[in-house]
Amino acid sequence: HAATELTPEQAAALKPYDRIVITGRFNAIGDAVSAVSRRADEEGAASFYVVDTSEFGNSGNWRVVADVYKA
């Protein structure tokens, strides 16, 4: 099962156990969220919340930071 994305309210009520950072070329924010979901799932997380997204220069590469939560 894939890790689910939390709302800001849900994330605020929970304590993350880790923070992950992924970088890559994403065509849309949805693609980045899917990549975070896969990584969170690999780490055994039940859910995640994207904290920050930023573009690296003009290369089209993105850096996505997310907190991950157990259950």
Rank of each mutant, 00 (worst) to 15 (best):
H1N: 10
H1C: 14
A2P: 10
A2K: 14
A2F: 14
A2G: 14
A3D: 02
A3M: 06
A3S: 08
A3R: 02
T4H: 14
T4F: 14
T4V: 14
E5K: 07
L6Y: 01
L6I: 05
L6T: 02
L6V: 01
L6G: 05
L6K: 01
L6Q: 03
T7R: 07
T7N: 07
T7A: 07
P8V: 10
P8M: 14
P8H: 13
E9I: 08
E9N: 09
E9K: 08
E9G: 08
Q10R: 07
Q10S: 05
A11C: 07
A11I: 03
A11R: 05
A12Y: 07
A13H: 12
A13W: 12
L14W: 07
K15H: 08
K15R: 10
K15P: 05
K15N: 08
P16E: 02
P16T: 03
P16K: 02
Y17C: 07
Y17W: 07
D18L: 14
D18F: 09
D18V: 09
R19I: 07
R19E: 01
R19L: 06
R19F: 04
R19Q: 06
I20S: 01
I20H: 01
I20G: 00
I20W: 10
I20T: 00
V21P: 00
V21M: 07
I22G: 00
I22M: 05
I22T: 00
I22D: 01
T23L: 11
T23P: 00
G24F: 09
G24V: 07
G24A: 06
G24R: 00
R25S: 12
R25T: 10
F26D: 01
F26R: 00
F26N: 01
N27P: 08
N27M: 09
A28I: 07
A28L: 07
A28K: 12
I29N: 04
I29G: 04
I29A: 09
I29F: 11
G30K: 14
G30W: 12
G30M: 10
G30V: 11
D31C: 08
D31N: 05
D31R: 01
D31K: 04
A32Y: 05
A32T: 04
A32Q: 03
V33L: 14
V33Q: 05
V33D: 01
S34D: 14
S34H: 13
S34P: 02
A35L: 06
A35Q: 06
A35R: 01
A35G: 02
A35P: 01
A35I: 08
V36E: 03
V36Q: 02
S37F: 07
S37W: 07
R38N: 08
R39W: 11
R39G: 02
R39K: 12
A40V: 06
A40Q: 03
A40I: 05
A40M: 04
A40D: 03
D41K: 15
D41I: 13
D41T: 15
D41L: 15
E42Y: 08
E43Y: 15
E43G: 08
E43V: 15
E43H: 14
G44F: 04
G44S: 04
G44L: 03
A45Y: 15
A45P: 02
A45K: 01
A46W: 13
A46I: 10
A46Y: 12
A46C: 11
S47H: 15
S47E: 03
S47A: 15
S47Y: 15
F48D: 00
F48M: 03
F48G: 01
F48T: 00
Y49I: 07
Y49A: 05
V50L: 11
V50E: 02
V50Q: 03
V51Y: 04
V51P: 03
V51H: 02
D52T: 10
D52C: 15
T53E: 04
T53C: 15
T53I: 15
T53W: 15
S54D: 06
S54F: 15
S54M: 14
S54R: 13
S54W: 11
S54N: 08
S54I: 14
E55D: 07
E55Y: 14
E55M: 11
E55R: 10
E55T: 12
E55N: 11
E55L: 10
F56E: 13
F56P: 06
F56Q: 10
F56N: 09
F56M: 12
F56L: 13
G57V: 06
G57W: 07
G57I: 06
S59I: 09
S59E: 13
S59A: 11
G60I: 04
G60N: 05
G60E: 07
G60P: 04
G60R: 05
N61Q: 13
N61T: 15
W62E: 03
R63W: 07
V64A: 01
V64L: 08
V64Y: 02
V65W: 04
A66D: 01
A66W: 05
A66F: 15
A66Q: 01
D67H: 06
D67N: 09
V68A: 01
V68I: 15
V68H: 00
V68P: 02
V68E: 02
Y69N: 00
Y69V: 01
Y69I: 03
Y69K: 03
K70I: 07
K70N: 07
K70Y: 11
K70S: 08
A71N: 10
